[in-house]
């Protein structure tokens, strides 16, 4: 079983950990020894934490892929949809594509965000457990670590794993131009792909700065490393500031502050001003504007 968690949507469970029985008894069982004002304050803080736990802000690049999530669809549905996505990519002759999933329902996400996890789908020679060589797509992800959600790892899996924990059976796909696909393959096959990974994770990582990263920022950095044929992160960030339009995080400042207090994977330390983050949608707009020949599509299950 994977020890990693999707790039975003599992954060809520951490706040719910606050709901331990010992805390309930302490806060809600009056005793003569505990001053009432302290209990009042503690109860209010607990209420805040519990309410915050229901917020969509944890949706993260709101991205999340988790091998540890409970299935919301049957294995057959997931298998069928994953294969449909693969066949669509293969039918278009895509050697590299950007793939996105919905780890949370759209209604639970902040404005401007729809997909919660982004990764690269790469046409590959897959070696099965019995030694057979099979052609298909491998998925290159950035996942949070289960026990340390503020830390991420680069993890490879496959379409059925990628879609196993989705909340909505819908895939976002960006197929770059042939030239960009060629350059992306070179980057993904080079040390640059790993070198561009910063394991210090934030749900709402700012794509213009260094210090925190989420799956969408890593994807964007790899894209620009390919576009500009460079591994120089300074050059990559300069070009992103000049040409990439990030998504404003439409969540109240108070919620973000409390989020950074209660959740290890929410940070505003890389946000000098109003928080912004990269999303599948903003990456799609970026490539549609600057990568002639790129294609963006949404897939839902065939009837």
């Amino acid at each position: 079983m994977s020890m990693t968690t999707p790039c975003h949507d599992r954060s809520l469970s951490r706040l719910r950990a606050v709901e331990s029985e010992s805390l309930r008894k302490f806060f809600f069982t009056p005793t003569k020894d505990t001053p009432m004002r302290i209990r009042l304050l503690a109860s209010a803080l607990l209420s805040v934490a519990l309410c915050f736990a229901t917020l969509p802000v944890q949706g993260g690049s709101f991205s999340s892929s988790s091998a540890s999530e409970t299935l919301k669809f049957t294995p057959e549905q997931i298998i069928q949809f994953a294969k449909q996505v693969e066949k669509t990519l293969a039918g278009k002759g895509a050697h590299v594509a950007i793939l996105a999933r919905m780890g949370r329902p759209a209604a639970e996400l902040p404005e401007g965000m729809h997909f919660t996890h982004v990764a690269f789908a790469v046409y590959s020679e897959i070696t099965a457990a019995d030694g057979r060589k099979l052609p298909g797509y491998a998925i290159y992800n950035l996942y949070q670590q289960n026990d340390h959600p503020e830390i991420s790892s680069l993890v490879q899996d496959f379409p059925v794993d990628f879609f196993s924990g989705v909340a909505v059976m819908e895939a976002g796909i960006i197929i770059p131009s042939p030239e960009l696909q060629q350059r992306l393959l070179e980057v993904i096959n080079s040390p640059t792909y790993v070198a561009l990974h910063d394991p210090h994770y934030s749900l709402i990582a700012n794509p213009y700065t260094l210090g925190k990263q989420n799956c969408t920022e890593h994807t964007l950095d790899v894209l620009n490393a390919a576009i500009y044929q460079t591994s120089d992160i300074g050059k990559i960030k300069a070009n992103e500031k000049a040409f990439f339009e990030a998504q404003t995080v439409n969540v109240s400042p108070l919620k973000l502050i409390l989020g950074s207090v209660f959740s290890a994977e929410v940070s505003t330390s890389d946000q000098p001003g109003k928080p912004v983050t990269a999303t599948f949608e903003t990456i799609g707009k970026y490539l549609q504007k600057y990568d002639a020949g790129s294609e963006m599509l949404i897939l839902t299950p065939q009837p």
């Binding site: 994977s2 999530e69 294995p75 298998i79 790469v122 457990a129 196993s164």
Partner: peptide, 30 residues
């Protein structure tokens, strides 16, 4: 979404247990 430590059954296990999948050892970009 349940955390890995609290889930009674992981999505990965459910998929694998369906018997409809092939396990992979490695994947190399073509």
């Amino acid at each position: 979404v349940q955390s890995g430590s609290h889930a009674s059954a992981s999505a990965g296990h459910s998929i694998a247990a369906s018997g409809q999948v092939t396990s992979a050892v490695s994947a190399i970009p073509l």
